[in-house]
């Protein structure tokens, strides 16, 4: 009887008359054969074993029992079955085709108790946590290692003031900075801008008083004051970190101009135009009697109204 392929909706007849139509078929998940047909008769669905089938014709299934015997077949307990669409049994749908309809597969006895299933589902999550949780902290620390290094407060010699000829003009100083970069000893070209400030410019720059620099703990590292007429501006544009230049502008004359988003600053570092949220960042500066300039390569976060030191 393995090859019975009753069609959905075909009439079901007992030896003494028609009883209903085929609603579903039930497959045996091991042998992949039809084990039962589900017959819908007067609103109830009964499962009839294939052994009770006499013959399957195009439009009808002939049972070997009579109507009285038919009503003795058990009613379908739908919750004990899953549709073949919700279960993975290789080749099942190649073997049994009942389109358009449903092939039912009995739920294994061991899967019928929901409480049991949910206990295991819960257990899986708990054990999953046993694997995942211990790694969270070490992995986070591992990734974060180089992210919050202390500030570099070394003084770096960047050049000599003899290079500056005129007051209130931006002069670029390119210098080499060597540093330890993970395991590498590297050297990079960096640049900052210096202005020899006229008294008015100097007053504007120091309009809020002396400029103090702090380390990460809030301790004072250095204080710039008006006795030094030289002012170093960080080469990093406070808008989004591009490199700006001293350029002549059609209407504003000589200015600091950032080519990225056209922020414009005057010789005091104040924003004249463009999207920059704050003035150019002043760096700690020392000028020796010989005219040698030393700075601390302080770096602030771009795009903020206030200065937030990051390096």
């Amino acid at each position: 009887m393995g090859s019975v392929q009753p069609k959905i909706k075909s009439k079901v007849r007992c030896v003494d008359g028609e009883v209903g139509e085929v609603a579903h078929v039930i497959a045996d998940p091991l042998s992949l054969d039809v084990s039962h047909i589900v017959v819908r008769a007067n609103g109830t669905e009964r499962q009839v074993p294939v052994s009770a089938i006499g013959a399957v014709r195009d439009d009808a299934v002939q049972l070997t029992c009579n109507v009285a015997q038919f009503s003795g077949f058990p009613e379908l307990e739908r919750e004990d079955y899953v549709s073949s669409k919700e279960v993975e049994i290789p080749h099942l749908e190649d073997r049994i085709r009942v389109e358009p309809g449903e092939v039912l597969v009995p739920l294994p006895v061991l899967e019928k108790n929901c409480a049991r299933r949910s206990f295991f589902a819960g257990f899986i999550k708990v054990i999953g946590a046993l694997i995942g949780l211990p790694l969270v902290w070490p992995v986070l620390r591992f990734i974060m290692k180089p992210m919050y290094v202390p500030y570099d407060n070394h003084w770096i010699k960047i050049g000599n003031i003899s290079k500056i000829k005129t007051d209130d003009v931006g002069v670029q100083y390119i210098f080499k900075k060597s540093f330890k970069d993970s395991v590498l000893e590297r050297e990079e070209d960096k640049n900052h801008w210096l202005v020899k400030a006229s008294p008015e410019t100097l007053k504007k720059i120091y309009r809020h008083g002396d400029i103090t620099f702090y380390d990460e703990k809030g301790a004072v590292v250095w204080v710039n004051n008006q006795t030094v007429p030289y002012v170093a501006f960080s080469g990093k544009c406070p808008h989004l970190g591009c490199g700006y230049k001293w350029r002549s502008h059609k209407t504003r004359g000589q200015v600091f101009l950032c080519p990225c988003h056209l922020s414009i600053y005057d010789a005091t570092g104040m924003v004249l135009d463009g999207p920059a949220p704050r003035s150019l960042d002043v760096l700690p500066i020392k000028v020796a009697a010989s005219g040698d300039i030393e700075i601390i390569d302080v770096e602030y976060k771009a795009g903020k109204k206030e200065q937030v030191r990051i390096a």
Binding site: A115, S118, F119, G122, F123, V126, A129, L130, L133, P134
Partner: peptide, 17 residues
């Protein structure tokens, strides 16, 4: 009592972690 077992297990795991 599955819930009790699961909760105590979770507790043990958090402690072990």
């Amino acid at each position: 009592d599955p819930t009790l077992v699961l909760v105590s297990f979770a507790g043990v795991i958090v402690t072990l972690t």
